[in-house]
Design a protein around this nucleic acid. Structure first.
Lengths: 126, 126
DNA sequence: GCATGATACATAGATATGCAAGGTATCGTG
DNA sequence: CACGATACCTTGCATATCTATGTATCATGC
């Protein structure tokens, strides 16, 4: 029973798995869409914008992996009154990837939402 | 083990993690909401109803874990013209858990959706 | 009665991911 | 010059999923 509907490349297939698991990587790439940010700033934005709180131990390995894959690029920036910061920026392949991941994510989320519909339509007594 | 309303960030926190990662467990519990199903039938329903295709090797350990946690219950049923099937059914704690998981899932999904908004508002060229 | 194929359930090892804890370096202040 | 705050990074652990393979039951043909 394997009739993958219309998955063009196996790259997308791999991403479907990733997306299904994490969703976190997508969040990080998505928040870098409008402008570059540095490590801790990413954490704060994820918290304030999306309500996702993740620890430092998660973000740095993730960013390193993404840089190794060429999805993001980094550069050191000296702050006027502060300490050097490493800014991360989406690359062109990174932007393309975000779009693909977003698409896969929504497919998964909508499928799940379809399953959840019967649940709360019944009654909510918490 | 059910704190219907004020769930300490402990238990809920754990579920947030689970939900963030998998979402698959939620899908399985959700599809068992209306009626009991047996292993392979769960796979087929996940595929047809939500477009989620997962292998057998994933579903059985998952169901075993859920049974160990008391979220589902199982019973063998002899088919008329067939082979014995192990039917899984949601327990009461399981139903409560599904609601909680659904809530956490939606919080995460909505947060992520907020991050994705800027992306596709720009333009879509695949 | 017995071999074969199909259905259904189950297990084992490999891989990947997120997390907690701890460590290093820079800057401003007294 | 010592101290605290900001910022970045690494190691080891626990957990979850996937791939591949194994086992048991039933129906069929001879």
């Amino acid at each position: 029973m394997d009739k993958p509907q219309a998955i063009p490349s196996d790259e997308l297939g791999k991403w479907e798995i990733q997306v299904r698991k994490g969703g976190l990587g997508l969040a990080v790439l998505a928040i870098l869409w409008p402008h570059r940010l540095y490590g801790l700033e990413i954490l704060r934005r994820l918290e304030s914008d999306a309500g996702l709180s993740i620890p430092e131990g998660t973000i740095y390995p993730l960013l390193s992996r993404m840089k190794a894959e060429g999805l993001v690029d980094s550069e050191w920036v000296e702050a006027d009154a502060g300490h050097p910061r490493k800014y991360y920026r989406l690359t062109d392949p990174g932007r393309a990837q975000v779009r693909q991941m977003a698409k896969s994510w929504r497919a998964f989320a909508q499928g799940l939402e379809r399953l959840l519909a019967p649940i709360d339509s019944i009654g909510d007594k918490t």
